[in-house]
């Protein structure tokens, strides 16, 4: 039982580290939505890890707030910036940074 738990923890931890490296653009895809999703994935896996570490309260908080709400806050801001970018390109016809 304990060995299984340790193995599961190890797998979770490796997945978290890989997701974190994707989020900061060291590994894999370079696009910003992928980075935001990867950061949300780190939070989600962390909440499973909190559950393994016998902290159900913290696991719930992390799942609801850290991985749910904050990911969506990022996406709201990203969508807003994208739509402004697009509107500007249509407006003066040149590409912005």
């Amino acid at each position: 039982m304990s060995g299984l738990m340790t193995a599961m923890t190890a797998v979770l931890c490796i997945a978290m580290l890989v997701a974190a490296l994707v989020a900061i653009r060291v590994l894999g895809d370079k696009s910003l939505p992928i980075a935001i999703l990867a950061a949300g994935l780190v939070s989600l896996l962390a909440s499973v890890l909190f559950l393994i570490l016998a902290s159900p309260d913290v696991a719930m908080t992390e799942a609801a707030i850290g991985s749910g709400l904050s990911t969506f806050l990022f996406f709201f801001v990203l969508a807003r910036i994208r739509s402004w970018e697009k509107g500007e390109r249509e407006y003066d016809g040149e590409k912005h940074d």
Binding site: A23, L32, I36, A39, G66, F74, V77
Partner: peptide, 8 residues
Amino acid sequence: LRMIVAFS
């Protein structure tokens, strides 16, 4: 935005 992701 990437810096904020990194901070989180």
